[in-house]
Design a protein around this nucleic acid. Structure first.
Lengths: 325, 325
DNA sequence: TTGTAAGCGTTATCAG
DNA sequence: CTGATAACGCTTACAA
């Protein structure tokens, strides 16, 4: 800045001002400064700026997995919303582990972000304490609670499980099963589904729980196990993700099981391919783009100092009936 | 740090040393400092640290799309590799546009990253200049060139297209077509495929180019267009992604076209689902995890000051023959 | 509209 | 092993 100023015939401060708010500098000086910036190839140092102003224009996001479209599409619209206002996003993967998340939160906090996005509502006590202590806006997404750290925008996984159970009960299925990946929220949906389905129909629900994350291969394998090891021959299967459900569909076809006549399959997530499987997948749709956008706008409002709007935003979900159930 | 030092009975500098390199401080002081850190809930300020040391421990990554598994899986392994050494990753989406990328590069550079990851080898002249001027290690991935900005790790898209053409020619297909999304690298593969296939068989290749990114729906649509508008009735179809290929498979089944007997389909990417479509997808496999890992280790080596290893690393690709071709 | 001066919270350098 | 002291490159009063 010193150099740029010298070249433009002004002081370093004036350069700073010209870059930050052009209206605070005379048009003539502005022009000379811009020329000087161009000829020197000056690149501002945001690190120094952040230290001096105590604003980093950096927002931190912690997601369980960046390769899972469910999260990446949400984060994508969040990033777009924040970038429109000049914020950058520091992204890390927590891998579904609260302790890893805690360590990452501490690491991210040391970068002095202006705000933070978290997936889910379950964090360690220490993490909550640090976040509260940081005094920055925090938004928790993809789940809902009455006691957010700061704000939260999402939907109720238990409600989703129950709605699917209602859908299944009304479909007249006489038996039900759940195929659930190793994910606390998925388990909450499965549990709520089972409780409601049993309450309405009086029939027990077979629960198959996977040791790891969802994948097509796991979907096939676990559906096979449901048939072979659990003796499931007919009814409705609620899968914790569309990927699992697609796997189940493929395995069912391989075994010559008619879908939805003999076995009906319900997914979760309404991913791109859900409308194109054979038969097309009945699933639970969550507007991830809206979630990300809402998270961004809520944070932006707080950062702009707008009077606090409601802290808990429930965007709900939607059951999409297609051919598989 | 001042406060922590006061509580521990040492100066601020000693606290800094204890945190940075515990071996440089007496065990006794170290213990007191750690206690003081715990009781005060002190969180180091990495911004100030970066300014003072001129090292941010931050690495910037620019990808065309974060929701596309092809890129996100590569970035995932890159992030893991860098995180193991204490680096954080600032991630932004360029959306395939070189000018947007240029603006983002400038923005990222202002954060003073210690290194940078770029997808692809085509960047604006201005972007190259800025990168060179920044004097940081840069790694370009997912493509290959003899003239990288600094280093590059990837594979040749033209080679991939030619290899698929060889595979197709040897398969004895009498006609060929390409289904290609709006992506420069995809087009390069398609072009190389067409040239080689025509050279070997003397038959022209029908090229269908999509206006936008790949999706299942686009795959169905463009395959339909290939049949209806271009009169393609039999032969091999090389798709620029597995997603497109899967769409083609679905559309073919809908139309009662036998795969691979009447129409053979080849994808690109070897995504998770490729082995589970019906028939299973013949495709080009690229080890994205290895690419990300290699990119991280190359950068890490440079950051550690290790004598420069080779700048261009070609990790190749692999045609996986399954049922669809 | 412009400039001066004082930080921001660290790390690096040098003495002790 | 520990402590003073001077940067790092900006922004924010405050003054002119």
């Amino acid at each position: 800045m010193e150099d740029v100023g010298r070249l433009a015939g002004v002081s370093q401060v004036t350069v700073s001002r010209a870059l930050r708010d052009p209206s605070k500098v005379s048009p003539d000086a502005l022009r000379r400064i811009r020329d000087a910036v161009a000829t020197t190839g000056y690149v501002p140092n945001a690190v120094a700026g952040a230290l001096a102003s105590n604003r980093s224009r950096l927002v931190t996001a912690l997601v369980p997995s960046i390769t899972n479209v469910v999260y990446s599409s949400l984060v994508k619209s969040f990033i777009e919303g924040m970038r429109a206002e000049g914020y950058h996003i520091l992204l890390s993967e927590t891998g579904f582990d609260p302790d890893d998340e805690e360590a990452l939160i501490a690491a991210h906090l040391s970068r002095r972000p202006d705000a933070m996005l978290l997936i889910g509502i379950h964090h360690t006590a220490q993490a909550r304490r640090q976040l509260l202590g940081a005094g920055i806006p925090v938004v928790e997404v993809w789940d809902i609670t009455d006691t957010p750290i700061d704000m939260c925008v999402g939907f109720s996984h238990a409600d989703a499980g129950r709605s699917v159970a209602d859908f299944a009960a009304e479909g007249g299925y006489l038996a039900a099963a759940t195929l659930t990946a190793a994910d606390e929220r998925a388990r909450r949906r499965a549990r709520a589904f089972a409780e409601r389905f049993e309450a309405r129909t009086g029939r027990p629900v077979t629960a198959v729980t996977l040791p790891g994350p969802a994948s097509l291969a796991e979907g096939r394998r676990s559906f096979a196990s449901l048939c072979d090891d659990h003796g499931f021959a007919a009814g409705v299967v609620f899968c914790s993700s569309d990927l699992l459900a697609h796997g189940a569909l493929i395995e069912a076809e391989t075994r010559g099981i008619a879908v939805p006549e003999t076995v009906a399959v319900i997914g979760f997530g309404d991913q791109d391919f859900a409308a194109h499987t054979a038969p097309a997948l009945t699933t639970v749709s969550v507007d991830r783009t809206a979630l990300g956008r809402k998270a961004a706008s809520a944070l932006l409002a707080r950062l702009a100092g707008t009077p606090r709007e409601e802290a808990v935003m429930n965007l709900g979900f939607n059951i999409v009936r297609r051919g598989s159930a």
